[in-house]
Simulated scan of single mutants.
Amino acid sequence: MVVSIIGRHSDGIAPFHIWDILAQVLSIMASEGVIDKAKFDSFYLPVYGPSKEDLREIIQEEGSFSIKEFLVHDFLSDLDSALVTPSWIANQIRAVYEQIVVQHFEDVMDEFVRIAERRWSLDTSLLQEEHAGLAMLTLSVAKA
């Protein structure tokens, strides 16, 4: 089985902004009346971005799988920087969070993307900052 998740490069505390992005855009949506403020205030999404060491330890302690291969990729290193646009990032976040957001707020993802694009279009330096510290953790595991 191959697993690929968003994590972080190192075991230390690192800035981990991808979930902050979701909160910031939803906050704007609440302030603009797109989503209900009470629903925004009640939205809780416990998320943890493990490091390679964290994930390896969890898998080994649980014992059901053995790790065959483990790769850590910089989140944006293999992308052409011209492709990393406000629209691209907003749609990446949409792909990850749409089901959770729609379940809590109903169908607001088109507006989410528009607001996110507007936010990053005003300050393109945010595009790189938002992914600082992020890594894609990809591992191949087999039944132990």
Rank of each mutant, 00 (worst) to 15 (best):
L134A: 09
P15T: 12
Q24P: 00
I67N: 05
A90S: 15
D74W: 05
D41L: 07
R56N: 07
S121F: 04
V141E: 01
D123E: 10
S140K: 15
K52M: 08
S42K: 09
H104M: 06
I93G: 08
K143T: 15
I6Q: 04
P50T: 01
D54E: 04
M29D: 02
F65D: 04
F43R: 03
K39S: 11
S31R: 11
K143M: 11
E61W: 04
P15H: 11
F75I: 08
L76T: 12
R94P: 05
G7R: 00
F43L: 00
W19G: 15
Q24K: 13
S4N: 09
I18C: 10
V96T: 12
E57Q: 11
D80H: 03
L76H: 08
L22V: 14
L122N: 13
L126V: 02
F112H: 02
I100F: 06
H73R: 10
S77Y: 01
Y44T: 14
G7Y: 00
V2R: 13
I58E: 08
E61Q: 11
K52H: 06
S10T: 15
R114N: 14
Y48L: 10
H104I: 03
I5S: 05
S140R: 14
I115W: 01
Q60F: 07
E98F: 06
D123I: 03
L137M: 03
V102G: 04
D41M: 10
E117K: 05
V141H: 02
D20W: 06
H17F: 15
D107M: 04
R114K: 15
V102W: 00
L45W: 12
S121T: 09
F40M: 09
E69A: 14
R94A: 09
S77L: 03
G49L: 06
E53Y: 02
Q60M: 09
S31A: 10
A132V: 15
V141D: 07
F112D: 01
E129F: 13
R8N: 03
I93D: 08
I100Y: 01
A135Q: 06
D78T: 09
F70H: 08
K39W: 00
A38S: 14
Q103H: 13
D110F: 06
T85A: 05
F70I: 07
G12I: 12
G63A: 00
D11A: 14
D110Y: 05
K68P: 00
S66T: 13
Q60P: 00
D78H: 09
Q92E: 12
S64C: 10
G133F: 02
L83V: 14
I59E: 05
R118C: 00
S27N: 13
D36T: 03
R119W: 10
Q103V: 00
E129Q: 11
E57H: 09
E130C: 11
L55T: 01
S51G: 06
L139Q: 08
D123V: 08
V47W: 03
Q103L: 14
V72D: 02
K68I: 13
E117G: 04
I93E: 13
Q103G: 10
Q99Y: 11
W88H: 12
A132F: 11
E57T: 11
A135N: 01
D80S: 05
V101M: 07
H9Q: 11
H17S: 13
E53L: 07
F75N: 04
F40W: 11
L76Y: 11
